[in-house]
Design a protein around this nucleic acid. Structure first.
Length: 746
DNA sequence: TGTTAACTTATTTTT
DNA sequence: TAAGTTAACA
């Protein structure tokens, strides 16, 4: 491919970026301005024109999906062979690989496993338990949040400080947490980034080696990098050292930074400009996605944010239709409106796949789903099915993790008695006590027991316990030995067989069969990864399994309306978009009202939603909405007031906006004046009685809007409320439902 | 080991 | 209100 061809279908600023000379470059790319295009063409340009060998290029994305898309597009430009040698992947995947290769320099075992959020939470709980901390005083979840935030800022447990008591507590938990991770030979998501950054920073030999190799580093979604990620790439290319390559090509949009709460800091854009003062800056302002009306509306909203490079997005697509703003009486009417509009459009030829409905919180999907079900409109809910969260999948993976790394105590605790093999809480406690006594990992203690070594004198491990534990040890031992002998697909078969898991799971029930089918799906993935090569695939399978997300496999062809949160919507586009719930306390969310930065992020979230639309945008809000069962009056979102009148179809403009604003004072006074106003009538009371009267009994097949098909196991009347236990077929979970919300006979 | 009753919590979730 | 979690119970 020659230069002319490569640059032919780019606009001028895109070309400036793609064909830029060596050195740092910042590309600020508005929504729909072709940022992936610029990235992929830049890679192709470096290879084809700059004669850079592909293995000297690293391209980093945030999601597997983005990496996959980029891979496809780069391949089309430079061919399969060059692509193969390119380093292209997510931050986490690239760092994980680096850490495995450099495990020696890290003083670590290369067989480390990666702990996901559930695992992390278990470790935090265990840490707090060991420290004797009450989880009511400090919620494990918030402790984990604080630890993660510290990590992203590259603050280690030793440096974690703070004046308050809670800080002190968290510091101790953090320290213990890291020790537990290390004892399990495990890294959490954050460690992957943190350790990679530290390694480059503090190990001169490694740093030099990687700098010599990677002459060009490209980063996608740069506004969403956290400190650890920024330090990683900055150290890799070197900011001011004389021998450093300094070829850092970053693409991002400050206005689309919506992961602050995950440690992302769009101010890395400012840092970049400070650290690389000679960096070129390219602005991509031409949109190939939306109409001018949508772009203008989005701009009016986002221009109210500070600390950003103002962009004026434009398009050749034409003005397009005005926005519609609809005020519903309540959430149900809002949902009915959305469903009705879609049905109407579908009748005149629109395909369901052209529509997306976006909301701030997952809870909002419920009303929408019900409205769609009622009208028979096909929809898909993004993020609803988590394959890798299913119990049977987690169990199977736990066995594989133990095969790779028997020190993994989370997995050990998970499957030591699954299937039941007589190792109950007592045995686990005895094992733990012995391990603690000897100061060794549980795995080592297990080995000692299996070898019949004098069980720690003080511990009471009777013969029966010892027998059970020894039997489990034998299972792990066999798995470990099979590791080099079998490709990972067969290894999984062996694990399921040897552990007795398969026979236990396939108990002849329908549910058992379904779960087994899921395991077989995992098996297909494993066979694919490992192929037929003995010893192959285990590390890769576990790594990819740990690093996938749900949005990754969003079916794009599905002819269904897509329902998704604003966060999940980033990077996507649809011809018609509905943004629902534009109300104070929802968007902006109540948790962000007293924090300017958080409020700015809510605004960006709205901006992201607005700019997902290609041609038609509907915005809705409700004047009352059921909150925790109670209908509450709702005030329209302040963001609606920022939509220019001229772009909005019909009414619902500034007049209503002003009314909405003064409403707040009205509400306040009314609330103050009569706090004892009788509560509004309970919504749908009659409906609930009727539902209860319908009386589901054991054996009834039912359908739940969230969990799908299930069978009622038992039902109990308590206090006018009914509690049913339902086994859900697809999800393979047993659930208690203390109401009948949306439950139907199937 | 599963069931039942009570308690508690209620954003977003790229990896 | 709904759903997740847990403690008590059989």
């Amino acid at each position: 491919m020659d230069v002319a061809e490569l640059l032919a279908d780019l606009n001028e600023p895109q070309r400036d970026a793609v064909a830029a000379a060596d050195g740092p470059l910042l590309v600020l790319a508005g929504p729909g301005s072709g940022k992936t295009r610029v990235l992929t063409h830049r890679v192709a340009y470096l290879v084809a024109v700059g004669r850079v060998e592909p293995w000297r290029i690293m391209a980093v994305t945030f999601t597997n999906k983005a990496a996959r898309e980029m891979r496809g597009r780069v391949q089309a430009l430079v061919g399969q062979e060059a692509l193969h040698r390119l380093t292209l992947g997510t931050f986490h995947a690239i760092c994980a690989r680096l850490l495995r290769v450099e495990s020696e320099a890290m003083g670590r075992d290369p067989d480390f496993v990666i702990f996901d959020q559930d695992d992390q939470l278990l470790v935090v709980r265990r840490a707090m338990q060991e420290l004797g901390l009450d989880d009511k005083r400090l919620a494990p979840r918030s402790a984990l949040g604080a630890i993660s935030a510290a990590k992203c800022e590259l603050i280690g447990p030793g440096e974690y400080g703070g004046s308050t008591y809670v800080h002190e507590l968290i510091g101790r938990v953090y320290d213990r947490y890291q020790r537990l991770l290390r004892a399990s030979n495990a890294l959490d998501f954050d460690d992957l980034l943190v350790d990679a950054a530290r390694l480059l920073r503090h190990n001169e030999e490694v740093r030099r080696r990687y700098r010599r190799r990677y002459r060009h580093v490209l980063v996608d979604e740069f506004q969403d990098t956290n400190t650890a990620q920024y330090v990683f790439v900055k150290t890799l290319v070197g900011a001011d050292e004389p021998d450093a390559p300094r070829n850092l090509f970053v693409v991002g949009d400050e206005d689309q930074s919506i992961y602050r709460w995950r440690g992302a800091d769009y101010r890395n854009v400012e840092r970049f400009r400070r650290d690389f003062p000679d960096a070129g800056v390219v602005l991509l302002e031409q949109s190939y996605r939306s109409t001018q009306t949508i772009l203008d509306a989005a701009r009016a909203v986002i221009d109210r944010n500070e600390r950003r490079t103002p962009k004026k997005l434009w398009t050749q697509a034409g003005t397009g239709a005005p926005l519609s703003v609809f005020e519903a009486r309540d959430g149900d009417e809002e949902a009915a409106y959305v469903a009705g509009e879609i049905e109407r459009a579908a009748r005149s030829g629109a395909r369901h796949g052209e529509f997306a409905v976006m909301y701030r919180t997952n809870a909002q999907s419920r009303a929408l789903e019900e409205a769609f079900l009622r009208r028979g409109i096909p929809y898909q809910l993004v993020g609803a099915t988590r394959f890798y969260d299913r119990r049977e999948i987690k169990d199977a993976i736990a066995y594989l993790r133990l095969t790779q790394n028997p020190l993994d105590e989370v997995s050990l605790g998970r499957v030591i008695n699954v299937p039941p093999r007589g190792i109950g809480a007592r045995s686990w406690q005895a094992l733990s006590a012995l391990a603690a006594d000897l100061g060794v990992p549980r795995w080592t203690a297990l080995q000692a027991i299996a070898a019949g070594e004098p069980a720690g004198a003080a511990q009471r491990i009777d013969a029966r316990m010892a027998k059970g534990l020894a039997a489990f040890h034998a299972v792990l031992q066999d798995l470990h030995e099979a590791r080099e002998r079998l490709p990972v697909g067969e290894l999984l078969d062996f694990a399921l067989d040897r552990s007795g898991y398969r026979d236990w799971l396939r108990d002849g029930t329908e549910e058992g069969d379904d779960r087994w089918a899921n395991v077989m799906e995992l098996h297909a993935v494993a066979a694919d990864v490992g192929g037929l090569v003995p010893g192959e695939g285990l590390v890769d399978l576990l790594q990819s399994v740990a690093l996938v997300s749900e949005v990754d496999d969003l079916a794009e062809v599905a002819e269904r309306v897509t329902l998704l949160t604003l966060h999940a919507a980033k990077g996507l586009e649809f011809p018609t978009v509905f943004l629902v719930g534009l109300e104070e306390h929802l968007l902006p969310h109540s948790r962000s009202l007293d924090d300017g930065e958080a409020l700015a992020e809510e605004r960006r979230l709205f901006y992201v939603g607005l700019t997902r639309a290609r041609s038609k945008l509907h915005v809705t809000h409700a004047s009352r909405r059921n909150l925790f069962g109670r209908p509450e009056p709702r005030e329209r979102s302040r963001f609606l007031d920022d939509l220019p009148q001229r772009l909005v179809h019909g009414r619902g403009g500034s007049r209503a906006g002003r009314a909405g604003r003064s409403d707040s004072r009205f509400l306040d006074t009314r609330w103050e004046r009569s706090p004892a106003t009788p509560p509004p009538r309970p919504a749908g009371g009659a409906g609930r009685v009727a539902a209860a009267g319908a009386g589901f009994g054991p054996g009834d097949k039912v359908c739940h809007p969230t969990f799908g098909l299930g069978v009622v196991v038992s039902s109990v009347d308590l206090d006018g409320d009914t509690q049913v236990t339902v086994a859900f077929v697809g999800a393979g979970v047993r659930k208690l439902l203390q109401s009948y919300a949306g439950l139907k006979r199937a």
